[in-house]
């Protein structure tokens, strides 16, 4: 199961998660965000950015090699 779930009913297709995903693992299809788990590193940024509270990232599925964090505090 995809650890990143997108609630399509809540997603307004603003594209913020798509633009700021460091791995380009998200895209818009029919004005809704769609996630590609192949590219995802489970950084969780999409979940924080989403103004619609539509994205949920299940980090318990995080792979050990996926440690890259976006330098957001700087």
């Amino acid at each position: 199961m995809d650890p990143v779930s997108i609630r399509a009913q809540w997603c307004k297709g603003c594209g913020i998660c798509v633009a700021f995903c460091p791995k380009k693992a998200l895209r818009l299809e029919n004005e809704k965000a769609v996630h590609n788990p192949e590219l995802c590193i489970l950084c969780g940024m999409c979940e924080l950015y989403c103004p619609d509270l539509a994205v949920t990232v299940d980090k318990s599925q995080k792979k050990p090699q996926a440690t890259r964090e976006v330098a957001n505090e700087s």
Partner: peptide
């Protein structure tokens, strides 16, 4: 939900951060 703010409005992001 979905809330009444426009697509891409930053208010939702602030709500998101506040809840967390």
């Amino acid at each position: 939900f979905p809330h009444l703010w426009c697509p891409g409005c930053g208010h939702g992001t602030i709500l998101n951060a506040l809840l967390r």
